[in-house]
Amino acid sequence: MKYLTQASVAAFTVAFASEAMAVEWNVSVWGTRRAFTEHVEKLAELVEERSDGDFTMNISYGGLSNNRENLDGISIGAFEMAQFCAGYHQDKNRAITVLELPFLGVENLEQEVAVSHAVYDHPAVADEMAQWNAKMLMTSPMPQYNLVGTGAPRDTIESFDGMRVRATGGLGEMFAAVGAVPTSVTSSEAYNAMEAGVVDSVAFAQHAHLSFGTLDIADWWTENLNPGTVNCPIVVNIDAYESLSDENREILEAAVDDSIEYYLENYAELLRDWDATLEEKGVEKVRVSPEEIAELRSQAQPIHDAWIAEASANGLPGQELYDLVESTLAEAKSE
């Protein structure tokens, strides 16, 4: 038929307009799908479902950028959403490194979510992220890190002396304070570094020891060292966020809490199976004595004080951010 009816033209126009208004975001993460990325996967699922397909996310595991350059990619609009870890480039995200200080006293993932989001909401963090055209969306809560290693177990401060350990941020500083030699190779590089003997041990949360294979070549795991963790936010490009319709912006924001809740439930399942996984892989559980942990804790406060001083010297409200972590954590523990 050569001619379209007026009704057909109207229907075509509406369909074209609807397609043109659809929003598709590219999301840059790394590695493989794992517990660390389940909230991103859930977020994508929820926004697509709640927008009736009008708002979708394409999640790329390393295809858009490497993990050390995700914040740079966000800054130039190479993609709309990304995950990064503060310890990969501390100079670009100084304010949130307060969350990576050793022995802050965080006991579980719910507390980690509370302190992270409190810090993310601080104006100093928003201002610093805005320099990279980035807006904080949600955290990627991780348990306290523990070591896996090869050879004889490292379960005393004396045995840490000279230990080459993959540890970033404040954790690296703490290990260095007791004579270890920290290196900040990325999570994707940790297995090769450990296999080649470049490092003796790797500090990770449980999911990462599984996902990046360090558990496969480990002889031991410290089950109770719990020196701290790293902080890995999910950020969105400010221009992309502001260009969303009011409806899609509300859908995105509302999906955050649901995605975090899903993440916590999923991680709890992983932890329930952890002992069986260690036994299956022949990895010895090592307990560090309370006396050794107390001595390590004594090394933490000078690192905290130095962070506050350095942050303040660089124009950040260091004491205020540190106090915010402590007060939020105290409140979370009282609930």
Results as ranks from 00 to 15, higher is better:
Met1His: 14
Tyr3Lys: 14
Gln6Val: 06
Gln6Thr: 07
Val9Ala: 11
Ala10Asp: 15
Val14His: 09
Ala15Cys: 07
Ala17Lys: 08
Ala20Pro: 00
Met21Cys: 09
Val23Trp: 06
Val27Asn: 01
Thr32Lys: 15
Arg33Glu: 13
Arg34Phe: 02
Phe36Leu: 15
Glu41Arg: 13
Leu43Cys: 05
Glu45Trp: 10
Glu45Phe: 12
Glu45Asn: 12
Glu49Trp: 02
Glu49Ser: 14
Gly53Asn: 10
Phe55Asp: 07
Asn58Glu: 04
Arg68Phe: 06
Asn70Trp: 02
Gly73Pro: 07
Gly73Ile: 13
Gly73Lys: 05
Ile76Phe: 15
Glu80Lys: 06
Gln83Glu: 07
Phe84His: 09
Cys85Ile: 13
Ala86Phe: 02
Gly87Asp: 00
Gln90Phe: 06
Lys92Asp: 10
Arg94Tyr: 07
Val98His: 02
Val98Pro: 04
Val106Tyr: 00
Glu107Leu: 11
Glu107Ala: 12
Asn108His: 02
Leu109Ser: 11
Glu110Tyr: 10
Glu110Asn: 10
Val113His: 09
Ala114Ile: 04
Val115Arg: 00
Tyr120Phe: 14
Asp121Cys: 01
Asp121Asn: 15
His122Phe: 06
Ala124Cys: 02
Ala126Gln: 13
Glu128Gly: 01
Asn133Ser: 14
Ala134Asp: 00
Leu137Tyr: 00
Thr139Val: 15
Ser140Gly: 07
Pro143His: 13
Asn146Val: 06
Gly149Lys: 05
Ala152Phe: 05
Arg154Met: 09
Thr156Gly: 04
Glu158Gln: 14
Glu158Val: 08
Glu158Trp: 09
Phe160Pro: 00
Phe160Thr: 00
Val165Lys: 10
Gly170Cys: 07
Gly172Asn: 02
Ala176Met: 03
Ala176Thr: 02
Ala177Gly: 12
Ala177Met: 07
Val178Pro: 04
Thr183Leu: 06
Thr186Cys: 03
Ser187His: 09
Ala193Arg: 06
Glu195Met: 10
Glu195His: 04
Glu195Asn: 09
Ala196Lys: 11
Val198Gly: 02
Val198Tyr: 11
Val198Met: 07
Ala203Tyr: 03
Ala203Arg: 03
Gln206Arg: 14
Leu210Gln: 11
Ser211Ala: 15
Gly213Phe: 10
Leu215Gln: 08
Leu215Glu: 05
Asp219Gly: 11
Thr222Gln: 11
Thr222Met: 08
Glu223Thr: 10
Glu223Cys: 08
Asn224Gly: 13
Asn226Gly: 00
Asn226Val: 02
Pro227Cys: 07
Val230Pro: 00
Asn231Gln: 14
Cys232Met: 06
Cys232Leu: 05
Pro233Arg: 06
Asn237Leu: 08
Ala240Phe: 08
Ser245Gln: 12
Leu252Ile: 07
Leu252Ala: 01
Ile260Phe: 11
Tyr262Met: 09
Tyr263Asp: 10
Glu265Pro: 00
Glu269Leu: 09
Leu270His: 05
Leu271Tyr: 11
Trp274Ile: 06
Ala276Glu: 12
Ala276Cys: 04
Thr277Leu: 15
Val283Lys: 12
Val283Ile: 15
Lys285Trp: 06
Ser289Leu: 10
Ile293Cys: 03
Ala294Met: 15
Arg297Ser: 03
Gln299Ile: 01
Gln301Arg: 14
Gln301Ser: 08
Ile303Phe: 03
Ile303Lys: 02
Asp305Arg: 01
Ala309Ser: 06
Ala311Asp: 08
Ala313Thr: 04
Gly318Thr: 03
Asp323Phe: 11
Val325Tyr: 03
Thr328Leu: 12
Ala330Ser: 15
Glu331Leu: 14
Glu335Arg: 14
